[in-house]
Design a protein around this nucleic acid. Structure first.
Length: 430
RNA sequence: GGACAGAUGCCGGAGUGGUUUAUCGGAGCGGUCUUGAAAACCGUCGUAGUUCACGCUACCGAGGGUUCGAAUCCCUCUCUGUCCGCCA
């Protein structure tokens, strides 16, 4: 959520910044300003009347206590009551309207986010690792999984529906090994580990910005205000919703392993083969909550943490910075890490590391008390900044390992760094 | 799921319709005293909105209602505790 005060003060700037997303928000901003003015007018009328009512009511109390007559005051109060009732009915209508409009407005791109239309305009940052030269035609990960009988797509459909996959044997074990490896890496990098509810309520989903605009992307529990989380970003960030965090514990660096659930509405036909796009997948998530002045450095740091996992697994990847047009709804700046898939001869997203400025924190009310050295009494609560990224998506990591480490006979090697987590060194048909 | 009890500020805890601007205690912070500390004493101590500002308004689990006036009365919901049932 954007700051209404900022919209009031510099509406043209906000309009311009939002236009970099290639969507038109001029009308929405104008509408917000209009409703905002109406609301503030009603609010001040209401408060004036309430002040008058409180004063007179107190007087009535005092007179009655002394046994005096308060007829005159009571008559006035009845008039005030009628006026107040009328205004009190209008005021919330405007404030609700204002909030509704604000919640649908995306974050403004940061000044260091390159301007651009779509994916094509994303800025290349770096490429890491050596793409292996194959002296045979590399198979796709699901072909390898089929051959080894470790991916069972049919039974996934039998148990649930399409885009659910059963993993067996070495694939299941590798998922588990990767989970432990990634969590240990996150700990090494200073992120505190959590085990979290994977069902969250709507307030949490509003907090991180999935709601109200992207309701159709999540699975809802019947007859309950509860949803399967699309990412651990939701519970991890909302842990601190409505809290004032002690300054000395900042920055908060957090991590959690969770399954993630996405309805994939609107992506019918895309990535239908393999485990790249599933309704349920495992992921280790990294979250940082910090002060505004530390956010840029923390964003770099968190991204490097995610990169270090790809490096440890020796998977070639590239890092791109998303342009304004490709930026997610809540983000102000974002790096995507894309891992190399030799069979497809292309990079595919495996981690998205976003900086949200105070956009999520304003929705979720995550704050700290900014000390005022001159006057400690004037210390003010201030919104924090949130940053998160995958460290990493486990299914896609597994797929990338299978492809990059494959042998001609359909087996694949297990990256050395996983030795402490997995006994096997080679995945082959039994 | 059933029965009962509860929800007040950072914490404990009072408060059953009107000088309550939420009593009091503890913790915290500032000060006096002290070589320093402790003790004692004095002061301070929530959040948000609105206003150029003084100030005003709202918030006692959440929402609604009664009233000139609600922490207090009424209704609905949520959560917590205890006991019972069920259960990995």
């Amino acid at each position: 959520m954007l700051d209404i005060k900022k919209i009031r003060q510099e509406p043209d700037l906000i309009k311009e910044l939002l236009s970099y997303r290639n969507l038109e928000f001029i009308n929405v901003i104008d509408q917000i300003l209009e409703v905002d003015e109406k609301w503030r007018k009603k609010l001040s009328e209401k408060e004036t009347l309430e002040a008058e009512r409180n004063k007179l009511s107190k007087l009535v109390g005092q007179k009655k206590a002394k046994g005096e007559d308060a007829e005159e005051e009571l008559k006035q109060l009845n008039t005030i009551k009628d006026n107040l009732k009328e205004i009190s009915e209008l005021e919330p209508i405007f404030s609700e309207e204002q909030k509704k409009l604000l919640l649908e407005l995306p974050n403004t791109p940061s000044s260091c986010t390159p301007r651009g239309k779509d994916e094509e305009d994303n800025k290349f940052i770096l490429e890491w690792g050596e793409k292996r030269e194959f002296d045979f035609t590399p198979l796709e990960h699901h072909e390898i999984g089929d051959k080894l009988k470790v991916f069972d797509f049919e039974r996934g459909v039998k148990l649930a529906k399409s885009r659910f996959t059963v993993m067996a044997g070495i694939a299941a074990k590798l998922e588990r090994a990767l989970m432990n490896f990634m969590l240990d890496k996150a700990s090494e990098n200073g992120h505190q580990e959590f085990n979290l509810p994977v069902i969250n309520n709507s307030e949490s989903l509003y907090g991180t910005g999935q709601f109200p605009k992207f309701k159709e992307d999540v699975f809802k529990l019947e007859n309950e205000d509860l949803y399967l989380i699309p990412t651990a970003e939701v519970p991890l960030t909302n842990l601190f919703r409505d809290e004032i965090i002690p300054e000395e514990s900042l920055p908060l660096r957090l991590t959690a392993f969770t399954p993630c659930f996405r309805s994939e509405a609107g992506s019918a036909g895309r990535d239908t083969r393999g485990i790249i796009r599933q309704h349920q997948f495992n992921k280790v998530e990294l979250v940082t909550i910090c002060k505004a002045e530390d956010a840029e450095a923390e964003h770099e740091r968190l991204t490097l943490n995610a990169e270090s996992i790809l490096q440890a697994l020796n998977l070639p990847y590239r890092k791109v910075q998303l342009c304004s047009g490709d930026l997610g709804f809540s983000a102000t700046r974002c790096y995507d890490l894309e891992v190399w898939f030799p069979s497809q001869n292309r990079y595919r997203e495996i981690s998205s590391c976003s900086w949200f400025s105070d956009f999520q924190a304003r929705r979720a009310q995550i704050r700290f008390k900014r000390p005022n050295p001159q006057n400690p009494k004037k210390s003010k609560n201030e919104l924090l900044h949130t940053i998160n990224g995958s460290g990493l998506a486990i299914g896609r990591t597994l797929a990338a390992i299978m492809e990059n480490y494959q042998n001609e006979n359909g087996s694949f090697e297990i990256p050395e760094v996983l030795t402490p987590y997995l006994h096997e060194k080679l995945a082959q048909t039994a």
